[in-house]
């Protein structure tokens, strides 16, 4: 019986372990090893930290790196601010069929590929696009207005792409908050603000943190949205990685960038957990 159950466990774990090893662990280790190589001649390499030094010595790389982190944090916060009331409304204010219908509406955009959705935004925002035409028609603008290719457009795109990943964990945690706990908050003398601060937000904390982690990681690693809505000059870190690998064919530097991005997201997620006093088990479990 014991050996049988051990065999069963091993068989069940095999796909997971294979997946983790082949798709995550081995590639990351390889990326790390590649990042430590320095090309000194045709087909000749030596181990060094030269790629990392290049990164720290080139202000543009460093600037892009920090800018990507900051923009992702801001995008995460904006997503949270928009998603929280939406989730509260879906989870607590309405019941029954309307609830599932609204939840489904949040999901609907994700039936279309991210590429198509981003093109949708381009149609709205470009110089000859819908918004520009409306503004001219109403008389608020005298000529065509270009709303694409700036940080605002990137932000809109990032928030839009991430919304669902914030709404789902928030709705789940808020739904588990019994109505009578909120009512008790009011009954004992609380007002809207204090009930929100002392009862609703602390209860929703695991959902807030897990939503923020997912949205932050998605924004940080997003390539499509910043490139399409921000244009060539959008200075997104994933673009740097892409161009090192594909355009410059400098795999060593690209690998170093990739590894730095992994470090960055790990540090920020760790910091976020520490700051909110949550643990990974609590937020993901």
């Amino acid at each position: 019986m014991r050996t049988e159950s051990k065999l069963g466990l091993a068989l069940l774990l095999t796909p997971l372990l294979l997946w983790l090893a082949l798709l995550i662990f081995i590639p990351q280790v390889d990326v790390f090893l590649v990042s430590l190589r320095e090309r000194i001649g045709v087909g000749q390499y030596q181990t060094s930290l030269a790629n990392y030094l290049t990164f720290f010595n080139e202000p543009l790389y460093l600037w892009t790196f920090l800018r990507t982190a900051m923009m992702s944090i801001v995008a995460t916060l904006i997503t949270l601010l928009i998603a929280f009331p939406v989730s509260y409304y879906i989870a607590k204010m309405i019941k029954g069929r309307m609830q599932s219908a609204l939840f489904l509406l949040c999901l609907v955009p994700f039936w279309v590929s991210e590429l198509v959705r981003t093109f949708g935004w381009m149609i709205l925002l470009r110089e000859t696009g819908v918004f520009s035409n409306i503004l001219q028609f109403v008389g608020l603008a005298s000529g065509p207005v270009e709303m694409l290719y700036n940080d605002g457009a990137i932000m809109v795109g990032l928030v839009y792409t991430s919304m669902l990943f914030m709404v789902v964990p928030l709705v789940t945690t808020l739904e588990s908050l019994p109505d009578e706990v909120v009512e008790a908050g009011y009954d004992l003398g609380g007002n809207g603000l204090s009930v929100l601060r002392e009862i609703i937000v602390p209860h929703a904390m695991p959902g807030i943190v897990s939503g923020c982690i997912v949205v932050f990681m998605l924004s940080l690693g997003n390539y499509l949205t910043p490139t399409m809505l921000g244009g060539k000059e959008s200075l997104w870190f994933t673009e740097l990685i892409y161009s090192q690998f594909i355009v410059r064919f400098n795999w060593e530097l690209g690998a170093a960038f990739g590894f730095l991005l992994l470090m960055l997201s790990s540090v920020i997620v760790w910091g976020m957990l520490k700051l909110t006093g949550q643990s990974l088990e609590k937020t993901m479990g």
Partner: peptide, 17 residues
Amino acid sequence: NKRPVNMVFQHLALFPM
């Protein structure tokens, strides 16, 4: 929240946080 009555709820509704 201003009434001089308070309520003990069916499932007590203590604040778990």
